[in-house]
């Protein structure tokens, strides 16, 4: 079967598509004027959107095709974690009194939301290193690797929604009818923060591989610092730290909304959401600047 004409004349005559490569990175001859970098970043993202989806499907299908238990894995770990904390609560190691909702429901929602952060961050951090040979051999928008990996974090979390639903049924309680919707939408800043950090870490990990090994410990530490599995006592030393922890607001505001339909953390949440956006913009800019210097070092 003959291949259809390998190129189109009109494409050949399109002279505006001259690309210039210098140390500063690629740009086209027409890219001048204010906000060049921002425009280039947005164009790169738009060009990459089909690839992001394609890579996401690839990650998703290869992940679940290769494991026997498949989706069950997403349930086992949170159940074990929550179970451990229930035992500790009963033994009096941690204080889980004073909750208006059943502890298990509270804890499962917390770990699920926190997982959006950890799973996303882990996936993003490893995304460039794992692509390894591809980075060195094909020129494609690298940003697609990080964005598609961050989507995996969402899927992981979405799968655990089944667990949350099950917890509500088992404990015969119901989420707040309006709050549940607001609660899930208010997770967006957490995702933005994850992506911003992920963009930054993915490139740093390409040079300093240690980062990939550090991330799991770091997130575990963060989980203990953040009141995910137990309510915080504001007067304690940890409570003071927690007041300056954006993750506290980004996780507990949505949880409060889902459980009760209201939260005392609104101000802190809004500030944290703004911080998240700043982190994303900074991370993305760093990524854009640094990606051209990374291929030779992967």
């Amino acid at each position: 079967m003959p291949i259809s004409p390998p190129f189109r004349m009109e494409a050949m005559n399109n002279q505006s598509s001259e690309i210039i490569y210098t140390y500063a990175g690629p740009r086209t001859a027409s890219d001048t004027g204010p906000f060049v970098k921002t425009r280039l970043m947005i164009r790169e993202f738009i060009d990459a959107r089909e690839l992001i989806i394609r890579l996401f499907i690839r990650n998703f299908s290869s992940k679940y095709r290769q494991s026997v238990l498949g989706i069950v894995w997403a349930f086992i770990i949170p159940i074990i974690t929550v179970g451990m904390f229930m035992v500790m609560g009963n033994a009096g190691v941690i204080n889980v009194q004073g909750l208006k909702a059943p502890y298990a429901v509270y804890a499962i929602i917390g770990t699920t939301f926190f997982n959006l952060f950890t799973a996303g961050l882990t996936a993003c951090t490893g995304s460039i290193v794992q692509a390894g040979s591809m980075i060195v051999k094909i020129n494609f928008p690298r940003i697609a690797l990080v964005f598609s990996s961050s989507l995996m974090g969402i899927v992981d979390t979405a799968v655990r929604l089944i667990l949350i639903a099950a917890a509500f049924i088992v404990y015969r309680t119901a989420p707040h009818p309006v709050g549940v919707l607001i609660g899930f939408l208010s997770l967006i800043p957490l995702f933005i923060l994850t992506l911003g950090l992920g963009l930054f870490f993915s490139l740093v990990a390409a040079i300093l591989r240690d980062l990939i090994n550090i991330i799991p410990f770091a997130t575990m530490g963060l989980m203990l610092l953040t009141p995910v599995l137990y309510p915080i006592d504001n007067s304690s030393a940890l409570g003071v730290v927690t007041q300056y922890n954006p993750l506290h607001y980004l996780i507990n505001f949505p949880r409060d909304m889902v459980l009760y339909g209201s939260s005392e953390l609104t101000t802190g949440y809004i500030v944290s959401a703004i911080i998240s956006c700043i982190v994303l913009i900074a991370g993305w800019q760093f990524f854009y600047m640094a990606q051209t210097k990374i291929a030779e070092r992967v």
Partner: peptide, 19 residues
């Protein structure tokens, strides 16, 4: 790889016209 835009040159400039 420089022509393909995988590496960026440390010095100098490469211009490419066309897909």
């Amino acid at each position: 790889k420089l022509l393909n835009g995988i590496y960026m040159p440390d010095l100098g400039k490469i211009s490419i016209r066309g897909r």
